[in-house]
Structures are given as C-alpha cells and as structure tokens.
Design a protein around this nucleic acid. Structure first.
Length: 246
DNA sequence: AACACGGGCAACCGCGTGTAC
DNA sequence: CGTACACGCGGTTGCCCGTGT
C-alpha cells in the first residue's frame, strides 16, 4: 500500500487567511520547525490542508521575505533570467533571496509582460513580434562577425535579432553560447570565456559584460564590466538598436 | 453616489516527480 | 516492483481596491 492520505479534504477551510490563522501557523513553525506539512495544520490547530499551509508560509509568512516592491534592478535581472530559464519561476526566484516564485511570476504577468508588449516584443521568446522565421538568430549575431570587417559584419548582422531586447536600457543579452575571446580579439564559440551579455548605448559607447563562472549568473551581479577600448572588436561590428531594427 | 472596469496579488488547481510503503 | 501519496511547481482564478465615468 502507499502512503496515508495527506488530509481529510472535507470540512477544510479555504480562501483568504485570517490573522488568527496566520498567528497559529507562524507560532507553530517558529516553535517546531517544518518536518511534515501534512501534520502541520493538525498540530497547529488549523482547519486547512497542508498544501494551503505551505503556500501561506512560503509566500507570505516566512520571516525572511522582502516586503518591498521589486526594484528596477531586480526587474532587469528577472528579464535576464527569464530569457535563460523561461517560466521556471522557482529557478528564477532562487536568485532573489527574500522573493518568492509566486511574487516574481505575478510581477512578470502584471508588469513585465505589459512592458514587452508595448515594445512589440514577445514575452515568451524575447524576440520581436512578427519576425520572419528565416531571420538570422542571435548566435549568428555574435559569432559570425568574428573575422569580418566592420562593414561586412554589419551587413551580416543586419537582420540579427538578439534574444533579449530592453529598449529602456538599450540592452541586448546574448546567450551563454555567444562569446567574445578577449585574448584573440574576436567572437568565438570557445568555452574559455563566458560572455553573458553585451550592453550597447544608442550614443555609441559600448560595454561588455563577462563572467568566468556560468553558475554566477546573473551577469549584472557577478560580472566585471569592461570599458570599451581599441583592443575590443571593431565597434562597428556591434550596432545601436536603431541600426538593428530600423 | 453608484456603478463598471481593470490591475494587482493571494490563493487554488492540477500535473509531474520523487518516494514511502 | 507497483501503487498511492507528499511535495513542488507553473498556470489560473477570483477577490479586493483604485480609478474612471
């Protein structure tokens, strides 16, 4: 036989939690810890199922939760992580101590999705809506320009669509497969250098973001931002957003 | 003042996976 | 080894509140 049922579904309370229920659950967990969610409501004197208790605790009652609105910096990181992980909210939330997957998911659905749609970007794919299927993808955007002249590179990349487009900060994120080899001075698929992102200003300045350890993503938290200088690939191989999409 | 509407968010639902039995 | 359930996760729902008419 299998396990015992988690709870008797009949007679259980549903809907919004009361202050009294919150206090009972909080006191119980702080005094006893969490060993088995199935037993928590019974031992805490709650007419809720264990699943409901777990959700209430993880999404609202946990003492380590941040109680402030998601900042613009956090939002940018969420966008970066979503371009990498998709709708894996728990994975994304793991990069934000004190934030819950539910909170990030709600923020994505209510704020970021709206922002993307205003910009004509598909929130699911991070690509421009109504792009033809045969357009050059973002990998070619970077690696194919490795040995090309500036004008050749520009021609080769003119239809490239980056994976992430953030018109607010003029930021284009490349995938982890896209790399700039600092020692060779060109774009490469080498595993030796992990270029997580590239930042392009419409004013013409450019910064590169690198991380040395893929696990340290997001880049903005752990990378070194290097100033554009002559040792980098020809600046013309990268384009301001208006050059890419006009 | 009353109503309609939409946004934001907490909570629920259902499924996949891991695991106790 | 198969079954049944706990748990975690992502999708969805529904309530509350602010704003517009």
């Amino acid at each position: 036989m299998g396990r015992q049922p988690c709870c008797d579904k009949s007679g259980l309370k549903r809907g919004p939690w009361t202050l009294d229920e919150d206090q009972k659950l909080t006191n119980f967990i702080l005094n006893n810890g969490i060993h088995c969610w199935r037993l928590v409501p019974k031992l805490a004197g709650l007419m809720r199922c264990g699943k409901s208790c777990r959700l209430r605790w993880t999404n609202y009652l946990r003492p380590d939760l941040k109680r402030v609105a998601i900042s613009e910096e956090e939002e940018d990181q969420i966008i970066q992580l979503h371009s990498r992980f998709g709708n894996r909210w728990s994975k994304i939330a793991s990069y934000f101590p004190g934030r819950t997957d539910n909170e990030i998911k709600n923020h994505w659905n209510t704020r970021i999705k709206k922002r993307f749609k205003l910009l004509g970007v598909d929130p699911a794919t991070h690509k421009l809506i109504n792009q033809p299927d045969d357009c050059v993808n973002h990998h070619q955007f970077s690696s194919s320009s490795s040995q090309a002249s500036a004008s050749q590179a520009k021609e080769m990349n003119k239809d490239a669509i980056p994976e992430l487009i953030d018109m607010k900060s003029n930021k284009i994120e490349l995938s982890p497969e896209d790399r700039f080899d600092h020692s060779q001075g060109n774009w490469t698929s080498s595993e030796s250098l992990n270029a997580e992102a590239i930042l392009i200003n419409s004013s013409g300045s450019c910064n590169y973001s690198f991380t040395t350890d893929d696990s340290l993503f997001p880049a903005s938290m752990n990378s070194t931002f290097l100033s554009m200088n002559d040792s980098f690939p020809p600046w013309e191989t990268m384009f301001p957003l208006e050059d890419l999409f006009l």
